[in-house]
Every structure is written in C-alpha cells, then in structure tokens.
Design a protein around this nucleic acid. Structure first.
Lengths: 187, 187
DNA sequence: TGCTAATATAAGACTAATCTTATATAGGAT
DNA sequence: ATCCTATATAAGATTAGTCTTATATTAGCA
C-alpha cells in the first residue's frame, strides 16, 4: 500500500514517468522502500484508474511513448491524509535474527563467522548511507533548499542512528562469543 | 523461506504439533518473525514432502488428531547448514519512514503528532520486550539452562538496543521539529 | 442458558512484491 | 562488427504471507 503513497509523494513534487520514478526510488528511498520496476508501472495504472493521477502521453518517434504522470487534486488530498494518519506498526522480518535465535546449534567459531559477515554487511550499508547523507546534505545546504528537502534527510539519519546501534550490539556480542560468556544484561 | 528453518529450529529442540509451533512462535520469535497459523500448517506439509520432518499421528477421540512433527537427520543437517550460511541482507520496508520522507507536506504540528504516535508505539514494544527479556533471563539463570537458551535471549537484546536508539532519534527529532530547525547533523 | 476460550487442523481466496521475459532503438565502448 | 548501457513500457508467472472460513469438542464463566 505504501508504494501508492510513495509514488504520489514523488509526483507531488513534479510530474514523472514510470522510468523516472524507478530512478527516484533507487536514488532516495530504496533503503526503506525498494520498488520493483514492474510494480511501479502496475501501481501507476491503478492510481490512474482511481483518478489520483493524470497521464500525459508524450509521443516519441524512436522509443516507446513517454507517459508522464502528474498528481490530481484528489491524489494530493489522499496523500496528505495518509501522511497525517498514524500507521499501525509493521512487524519486522529478519532472517539473520532467526539464525541468531537458533545459533545454539553452532559452535562459537561458526557463530563468530556468521556475526562477522553480518557486521561487514551492516558496515557496508552504513558507509554507503553516510556518503549519501553527507553529499546530499551539503548539496541541500548550498542550494539553500527548503524545509521539505531537509526533511527528506531525516530518513537517512534514522538509518545511520539505527546502524550505529546495530554495530555496537554486534561488536559487544562478538566479544562475548570470544569469551564464551553469554550472561544476560540488564535493561 | 526462513519460516522453514525457524520451524526446523523449534523441532530440533523437541517434537511439536502445528498448534504447539504457533504458540512457540508467538511466545518467542514473533518480534522478528511472526508466523501465520495457516502458513505453519502449510509449511509443515511441505517439510514433510521434502522428508525434513516426520509426522506422528496421535489419535484423539474428542478432537482432531494431533499430528506431532519431529525433525529428521536430513532436516537437522539442512538446518545447521542454513544456520552457518551467510545470508544476503533483507531490504527493510517501513511505511513510517515513507511518511517522514514526504512529511514536508505537513505542518510542524501535524508532523509532531505523527512522531508522537510512533514514539508511543515504539515505547510500548520496548516495554513489552524489556519485560519478556527480564523474566525469561531470570528464569534461564535460575534453571541454570545452558548456552543454547542464553543465546535465544540475544535477539530480544538486539530489539532493545535498536529500540533505544530509535527512541533517542525520535526524541531528538521531536525537539528539532519544535524548534523548527532541521539543520543536518554530521556522521 | 449461552458465550467465550482453548484445543486442533486446514482449505480457499487474496494481496504485495519479485522475477522473468518481451519489445524497440540509439549511442558509445571494446 | 558486436556488445553493453540507457531509454521506456508492460504482461505473465510465481512466491510469501495474510485473512477468512470451516470443522469439532470441552471447560469455565456469567
């Protein structure tokens, strides 16, 4: 469902084609809402059926026609209503945590390997996001872009804060595995 | 896919019926891998087809037959192999972050409301998990249960660490919204 | 007396998302 | 010469997970 609103969100800035939208997703929100190309096109035609977007066909001789979508007044209204509405929490689904939960079946060495792999993955994701955050925050500040642009940075900030905590937990855990000491902590 | 392995994981401790498994999921891993009752039964019969589990039918006069599943040698092997194997990272999907990303369309007051709601949700989840963590860590320590039991606590610990970071980010963000100051941070 | 919860299983329909494949062309790189 | 990338769209099949409904009985509560 959120894909509908994410698309409306992008279209609320400027009209875009399916192709443009795919690039917009990959370049900004993919770390918390990846979008499949095929699904974008399907969702666009659903939004069109519900008259939340308008389609403008721009004929091109050498390529398939560009179909540029723009948000309608109804679409804008539905988007803002959704943005305002408190959402029920999503349940998470993390196969890595399933591995950890049943890791009693592994030796400490095997467990350490799994943890080290996860650490590398999280670190990679973290570094990528840090780079994106830095360059785009500099860009936004140079251009003196407004409040709405600054707000888009907050999701990257969220990922960085969570990533840092994740890495601290992993480091602490790896140390405990090395000492073979799994004594519970207090919270 | 992880549901297959999570079921095998539970069955590696002791034989269980579909009904038992549903309770086991709800009581321990549901915060990172919720399982639908219907899906558990379907997955059990798939595992049976692949001979990773054995079914023992216990006839009951007054109720539907209890079908108790136990893990086979092949099942145990596949489980341990999976536990050892480094998994590709999952992409997240968080509608709340979609809201934040496009929150430029909301006023500061509206945004604060959305954030306050999320804070309450996260706090609720956090308190629940803290309670579960405390009681079950005490229980495990009293019973002098072994390494495998202590390891199951680590996933709750993970959720608590992440939850804390999440709440700190939210608090900081709410303060900034109140001051209408969205200046980027440095990471 | 009737309602609810617990025990126990499972099919059917549906939705969201992914993966694969198809069509069509231009321009640049090897 | 040939291959890859970018542009541009979209149907088809499949998978994982959810939601609804069905069946059947007992025990306890109000």
């Amino acid at each position: 469902m959120s894909l509908h609103y994410a698309i409306l969100g992008f279209l609320s800035h400027r009209p875009l084609s399916g192709y443009d939208l795919k690039k917009a997703f990959d370049g900004s929100v993919r770390h918390f809402w990846p979008a499949d190309q095929s699904q974008i096109y399907r969702t666009l035609s659903q939004l069109e059926d519900r008259q939340l977007v308008d389609k403008a066909v721009i004929e091109q001789e050498e390529r398939p026609d560009r179909k540029v979508y723009s948000i309608t007044a109804e679409g804008q209204q539905e988007l803002v209503e959704w943005l305002r509405s408190p959402l029920p929490m999503q349940d998470e689904r993390d196969p890595f945590l399933v591995q950890v939960f049943f890791a009693g079946l592994l030796s400490n060495e095997e467990l350490l390997e799994v943890l080290a792999h996860q650490k590398a993955e999280i670190e990679g994701k973290y570094e990528l996001l840090r780079h994106i955050y830095q360059t785009s925050s500099e860009q936004i500040q140079e251009q003196q872009a407004g409040r709405a642009s600054l707000i888009t940075l907050l999701t990257a900030e969220h990922a960085l804060v969570i990533g840092q905590a994740y890495l601290e937990w992993l480091d602490d855990l790896m140390a405990r595995v090395e000492n073979d000491d799994f004594t519970p902590k207090t919270f």
